[in-house]
Computed example of a mutant assay.
Amino acid sequence: MKPASSFKSYFFNNCLLVFFRRGLFVIVLLVISSCNFETKKISSEEVLELESKTLNWKEVDEYPAFEDCQNETELLAARECFEREVAENIYAYLSKQQPVVTESIDDTLYLYLEINSAGRPEIDSVKIDSTLNNQLPELRMWLDQSIDSLPKIYPASKRGVPVSTVFKMPIVIKAE
């Protein structure tokens, strides 16, 4: 019986002869020499940086929500529910005001509403044209008050982390 070490050398030598005969020796050497595995430890900061570059930060996983909208599971339906609730609250507040106008008004303004990561709503900006501003000088104050009177808002989230979002909302102003 041959010792184990001589068996290994016998097996290795026979394999080399087969590879030489078939012209595969060069390929085997390349494969054996290229199987040099190297691992590199990546810090959590590097992983976060790489992931933040690949994430689409313009989209959220969950839109901000009122209590009534939290049951919406589809992203588009949740957004529509949120925007509808905001619009209804703003229109309800504005309809309680009794403005006195000298001319009839039929205009649209654009409200940029920010919901910060704590769920606090705030007007980012509002575009009110000069005619509307002259007829309703209290309009900006009423918009601020209507936003302050909104019910509790749960913020949007991205990967489970609360994030700020901004919505552009058209508001139609009609007065006779």
Results as ranks from 00 to 15, higher is better:
Pro3Asp: 11
Ser6Ala: 13
Tyr10Phe: 11
Tyr10Asp: 12
Asn13Leu: 07
Asn14Cys: 00
Asn14His: 02
Cys15Met: 14
Leu16Tyr: 09
Leu16Pro: 03
Leu17Ser: 00
Arg21Val: 00
Arg22Trp: 04
Arg22Asn: 14
Gly23Glu: 10
Leu24Arg: 07
Phe25Tyr: 11
Phe25Asp: 13
Ile27Thr: 09
Val28Leu: 14
Leu29Val: 07
Leu29Tyr: 06
Leu29Arg: 05
Val31Trp: 04
Ile32Leu: 04
Ser34Gln: 02
Asn36Trp: 10
Phe37His: 15
Phe37Gly: 12
Lys40Gly: 04
Lys40Val: 08
Ile42Pro: 01
Ile42Asp: 03
Ser43Val: 04
Ser43Leu: 01
Ser44Asn: 07
Ser44Met: 04
Glu45Val: 05
Glu46His: 05
Val47Pro: 13
Leu50Asn: 02
Lys53Gly: 03
Thr54Ile: 10
Leu55Cys: 05
Asn56Lys: 11
Lys58Thr: 15
Val60Gln: 05
Asp61Met: 05
Tyr63Val: 05
Tyr63Leu: 10
Ala65Asn: 12
Phe66Met: 01
Gln70Arg: 08
Leu76Trp: 08
Glu80Gln: 14
Cys81Gly: 12
Cys81Arg: 08
Phe82Arg: 05
Phe82Gln: 06
Glu83Cys: 09
Glu85Leu: 06
Ala87Arg: 12
Tyr91Lys: 01
Tyr91Ala: 01
Ala92Pro: 00
Ser95Phe: 02
Gln97Asn: 04
Gln97Ile: 00
Val100Cys: 00
Thr102Pro: 15
Ile105Phe: 09
Asp106Met: 11
Asp106Asn: 14
Asp107Arg: 08
Thr108Met: 04
Thr108Arg: 03
Thr108Phe: 00
Leu109Pro: 06
Leu109Lys: 02
Tyr112Lys: 08
Leu113Pro: 00
Leu113Cys: 07
Glu114Met: 07
Glu114Thr: 09
Glu114Val: 02
Ile115Thr: 01
Asn116Thr: 04
Asn116Tyr: 03
Asn116Leu: 08
Ser117Asn: 12
Gly119Ile: 13
Pro121Phe: 03
Glu122Arg: 06
Ile123Ser: 00
Lys127Trp: 06
Ile128Leu: 07
Asp129His: 01
Asp129Trp: 01
Leu132Lys: 00
Asn133Leu: 10
Leu136Ala: 06
Pro137Glu: 14
Glu138Tyr: 14
Leu139Cys: 01
Trp142Ile: 11
Trp142Met: 10
Trp142Gln: 13
Trp142Leu: 08
Asp144Gly: 01
Asp144Arg: 05
Ile147Trp: 09
Pro151Gln: 01
Lys152Gly: 14
Lys152Ser: 15
Tyr154Ser: 15
Pro155Asp: 05
Ala156Ser: 12
Ser157Gly: 13
Ser157Tyr: 09
Lys158Trp: 05
Lys158Glu: 11
Arg159Leu: 13
Val161Gln: 12
Pro162Ala: 07
Phe167Asn: 14
Lys168Met: 13
Met169Trp: 02
Pro170Asp: 14
Pro170Ile: 07
Glu176Tyr: 15
Glu176Pro: 15
